[in-house]
């Protein structure tokens, strides 16, 4: 038989199979998380291989335990959600305020040291965060900022700023210069051009970067662990959940409920803005 036909037909089937496998390995862990979070722990121990929840055993007691305040015998995750939300929003807003003008300058304006600045942001983006963590740990201990959410916001900016500048810069570079020039001919100054031409055009990309920054801050674990561990009322969801696992005999089903609480906001945000994010993340990647 013709090799071309054999390959085309077998690859068509292989492709379907591979897509199915990928769907299983990416979605299954999240499905499993959800299923476990609504099963009572005794049922899980009896039948660990079950994939569906029987109607009789469905429970939301796990969520009640996770979300209730510590005074009411729960784990106080509502407080953690508030902390995480505040920190992530503040870090995102501050990052954008600083990153947008900087990215624009690096992308568009010729100034002394521009290449070096450009390289610096990339190098810093790839630097190990544990290296940055040590002196920040020292400074925060001395300045009494350890255990403060404001301090954590400052640290998160160090995580989000370089990647934001990098992504925004790539986008600003794709905006045709002629658009800005025609605005200049119409009498707009530099700030006017940025406000009326470049920013509106870059809005989708700015939204993508904002979402990305929010996700980084919401998901972050190492710095929360280093700086907040002594202050239980300041814990973020990630930290609270990981310390819950170290605690005295918390059932795995309760841990899974906590995981769902931690993951759900991100997944909702992600599916609501999937197209925006996918394109924002790789804009400029085609240049290879």
């Amino acid at each position: 038989m013709d090799r071309d036909v054999v390959e085309t037909v077998s690859l068509r089937w292989l492709r379907r199979l591979v897509i199915a496998v990928f769907l299983v390995i990416t979605v299954f862990p999240f499905y499993y998380m959800l299923v476990l979070s609504v099963r009572p722990i005794e049922r899980l121990l009896l039948d660990p291989g079950a994939l569906v929840v029987g109607f009789g055993e469905l429970t939301v007691a796990t969520y009640a335990e996770v979300l209730k305040a510590t005074d009411d015998g729960g784990q106080g995750f509502l407080t953690f959600i508030r902390n995480s939300g505040m920190v992530a929003v503040a870090a995102t807003v501050l990052t954008l305020l600083v990153a947008i003008p900087g990215a624009y300058a690096v992308a568009r304006l010729r100034f002394f040291g521009r290449r070096q600045v450009d390289f610096l942001f990339l190098a810093v983006y790839l630097f190990p965060s544990i290296v940055i963590a040590i002196p920040l740990f020292v400074v925060f201990t001395r300045a009494g900022l350890r255990g403060s959410l404001f301090g954590l916001v400052l640290v998160y900016i160090s995580q989000t700023l370089p990647v934001s500048v990098y992504m925004l810069k790539n986008y600003f570079e794709t905006i045709p210069v002629s658009l800005e020039e025609s605005a200049a001919i119409d009498g707009a100054g530099r700030l006017g051009i940025i406000r009326r031409v470049s920013l509106p055009l870059a809005m989708p990309s700015i939204m993508a970067v904002a979402l990305y920054d929010f996700m980084i801050a919401w998901n972050e674990f190492l710095f929360a662990l280093l700086f907040l561990v002594d202050k239980p009322n300041r814990w973020t969801v990630s930290l609270g959940l990981s310390l819950l696992a170290d605690g005295v005999e918390v059932p795995k089903t309760v841990l899974m409920a906590g995981s769902v609480v931690l993951t759900l906001p991100i997944v909702i945000l992600f599916f609501a803005s999937e197209r925006l994010l996918t394109e924002g993340l790789t804009s400029g990647a085609e240049k290879g």
């Binding site: 990153a99 900087g102 990215a103 521009r114 630097f127 290296v131 900016i157």
Partner: peptide, 28 residues
């Protein structure tokens, strides 16, 4: 003028980067 605008716009970004990343690296 372009060069000045560029430096002015990049200055906050650069200062923050140096404060939260540059200095910590040197300090390490």
């Amino acid at each position: 003028r372009e060069s000045r605008a560029g430096l002015a716009l990049v200055a906050p970004t650069l200062l923050v980067t140096i404060a939260v990343i540059g200095i910590p690296i040197v300090w390490t």
